[in-house]
C-alpha cells in the first residue's frame, strides 16, 4: 500500500515535470532543424539559425535594450525594494498589511492592465509636465521597476525571517552605527534574498512582453517584442534559436546564483 502511494506520487510528479518541459524540449529541438518551414521529422540538423540571429540587427538591438532595461530596473528595484522589505518586517505601522499586499500586487495584476494604466499615466504626465515621457528609455525602466520590486520585497522578506535581530544589536553594542550595522551585518545576512530577488526581478523584466508593448518607443523595442513582431510575418527556426539563447543565459544565471545562495531555500 505504501509502495503504491509512493509510485502514484512519483508518477504524478513525472507527468507534471514532463508537461512543463515539453515545450522547452520542442523549442530546443526546433532550433537545430535544417529546413526553414518546421515539419516533422526534420530533414537534417544545422547550426545556421544561431548564426542567423547575429545577421539580424533587430535581435541584437532588442537583446541589448532588454539587457539595459533589465539591469537598470533591477538596480533601482533593489534600492527601493530592500528598504521597503526591512520596513515592512520591522516597523509596526497601521497600514502594514495593505501596503505589503500592494507591493506584491504587480505579480498578480495582468501585464496588459499594468501596461494600459502605465500608458495612461505617462500620457497624463507628459501633458501635465510638458516633457517627453511616453516611449522614452526611462519611462520603460520606470515601468519595469514596478515588476521588479515585488520579487525583491518577497524574497528579502523571506530571508529576513532567518535574521537574529540581536546580532544587529550586538554590532551596535560593539560600536557600529546603524549605517555600518546595515552594511556589515544586515546585508550579509539577507544576501540570499537580495541575490534571488535581483535574479528573479531581472528575469521578469527581461522576459516581459505585455507591459513593454505599451511603453516602448520606436527604435527601442525589447527582445520579447522583437520576437513577437518577427513571428507576425515569418515562422522559422531563428525564433527557436533566440529562445534557446535566452534559456541558456537565464538557466546559466540561475545555476551560478545557486552556487552562492540556495535558491530553493529562499524562493
Amino acid at each position: 500500500m505504501r509502495h503504491l502511494r509512493r509510485w502514484a506520487l512519483n508518477g504524478a510528479a513525472a507527468v507534471a515535470l514532463g508537461y512543463i518541459l515539453m515545450p522547452l524540449v520542442f523549442v530546443v529541438w526546433l532550433a537545430f532543424f535544417r529546413q526553414e518551414i518546421p515539419s516533422f521529422p526534420p530533414d537534417g540538423y544545422s547550426l545556421k539559425w544561431f548564426a542567423a540571429i547575429l545577421d539580424q540587427r533587430k535581435f541584437v538591438d532588442g537583446f541589448r535594450n532588454s539587457l539595459q532595461v533589465g539591469v537598470l530596473a533591477t538596480a533601482i528595484g533593489l534600492a527601493l525594494g530592500v528598504p521597503a522589505a526591512l520596513c515592512l518586517a520591522r516597523r509596526p505601522f497601521r497600514l502594514r498589511t495593505p501596503v505589503a499586499s500592494l507591493l506584491l500586487m504587480p505579480l498578480i495584476v495582468p501585464g496588459v492592465v499594468l501596461g494600459t494604466s502605465m500608458y495612461v499615466f505617462h500620457v497624463e504626465l507628459e501633458n501635465g509636465l510638458d516633457v517627453d515621457v511616453l516611449g522614452t528609455f526611462y519611462a520603460l525602466v520606470a515601468g519595469h521597476i514596478v515588476i521588479v520590486i515585488p520579487w525583491v520585497v518577497r524574497l528579502v522578506t523571506a530571508s529576513l525571517a532567518g535574521l537574529d535581530r540581536a546580532t544587529e544589536e550586538a554590532a551596535q553594542n560593539l560600536g557600529a552605527n546603524p549605517w555600518v550595522t546595515f552594511w556589515r551585518i544586515t546585508v550579509p545576512a539577507i544576501r540570499p534574498g537580495i541575490v534571488a530577488g535581483a535574479l528573479f526581478g531581472f528575469v521578469t523584466s527581461f522576459g516581459n512582453l505585455e507591459m513593454s508593448l505599451f511603453l516602448v518607443g520606436p527604435g527601442r523595442t525589447t527582445l520579447p517584442i522583437v520576437i513577437l513582431q518577427y513571428l507576425e510575418w515569418k515562422i522559422d527556426p531563428t525564433i527557436a534559436a533566440v529562445s534557446v539563447v535566452q534559456i541558456v543565459l537565464i538557466g546559466g544565471a540561475m545555476l551560478i546564483t545557486d552556487r552562492y545562495v540556495k535558491l530553493a531555500r529562499v524562493v
Binding site: 553594542n173 552605527n177 551585518i185 550579509p188
Partner: peptide, 20 residues
C-alpha cells in the same frame, strides 16, 4: 547616548554571534 557611543560590552542570551 546611542548604544554605539557607549563603551558597554554585552553578552546576549542568544549570544548573537555574527554567523557569516
Amino acid at each position: 547616548l546611542p548604544p554605539w557611543k557607549r563603551n558597554a560590552g554585552m553578552v546576549f542570551q542568544s549570544y548573537a554571534l555574527f554567523p557569516h
